[in-house]
Design a protein around this nucleic acid. Structure first.
Lengths: 159, 159
DNA sequence: AACAGACTGTTTGACAGCAGATGATTTTCG
DNA sequence: CGAAAATCATCTGCTGTCAAACAGTCTGTT
């Protein structure tokens, strides 16, 4: 402590003291801050987290609707509109009306999109190392597992 | 699986498959989702997360400036203005100029604020149980500790 | 066939976060 | 002392997300 002897009583370090070892409402702030930090760092690399995840998912499971994308990725429908707009404008995806259900699109990744995705994937390790450098590999695995568990419960809980 | 036999191919459960056990860019979304769920549930109780945290912190460490509040709680200065406005309007805090430094306020919790805080605190256990029911008590502690560790690193990293 | 209800994508309005500027005040330093 | 730099609270403009309303389409029931 007392690494920074600034003006008055800075370095109260209230937040850690509050949250450590005890689950609390402060966790809302904690996860929001973590998400934002990671998000900012990712967009810095040129491809936003949203766009990256969409390309990743399309590449993994094939064409699907914006609805499915936004549900699985926990991105709001209205936000997904903009993400797909941008990706389509950059020619990374195509949007074609599903002939069986003309309400929905069949969003498809293009070759250009696949190339862009592999470029972006190459940057991920460094990005993760920088964002989560405070955690050991084991702790990163823990964090991932815990959040995944919460997500899975959330998905089955609010069907 | 296949708990919901809906229309087409719902229940792909792509996200969990992607993120489990492996730290990934998807974690940005995961923490954002957790934050949002908790956030929504909290405001539902009448007192926003921001106001709640401010009262909690003032009660714990005594009067302090808006600057300190927003730094520790990771809430933007400009947002903190509004939060304190609302709390002051409800007579839950007082804002007095710090006599030693009249640039800053000494934000102080009132008796009314303390009562409101204990009302809100009483709802927390049920809220946490509901939001984090997928995790065991030990896992909740782990999650809390991991996020705290990340926050602490973030705070010291960008001082 | 006709209607009610649900679903998909989109638009709109409200709000948090961030960056930058401002006014009042304090601190630092020549 | 007095000027320059720093700090606190506030405001404004911008971006991104969320919630609600909307139009078009599909499904199920009568």
């Amino acid at each position: 402590m007392a690494t920074t002897t600034r003006t008055t009583d800075r370095g109260t370090a209230y937040f850690p003291r509050l949250a450590a070892e005890r689950l609390d409402i402060a966790l809302c702030r904690a996860s929001a801050t973590v998400a934002r930090a990671a998000d900012a760092h990712a967009t810095e690399e040129g491809l936003g987290v949203g766009q990256h995840l969409v390309l990743q998912m399309l590449d993994a499971i094939g064409p699907c609707s914006q609805q499915t994308l936004s549900e699985e990725l926990r991105i709001d429908r209205s936000v997904m509109v903009g993400i797909c707009d941008d990706l389509e404008k950059a020619d990374h995806v195509r949007r074609e009306r599903n002939p069986r259900d003309r309400r929905s699109y069949a969003v498809t990744i293009t070759d250009s999109g696949r190339r862009r995705l592999s470029q972006a994937q190459a940057l991920i390790p460094a990005f993760l190392e920088d964002t989560f450098q405070a955690l050991t590999p084991a702790e990163r695995g823990q964090l991932s597992a815990l959040l995944t568990k919460l997500l899975r419960a959330d998905a089955s809980g609010s069907h």
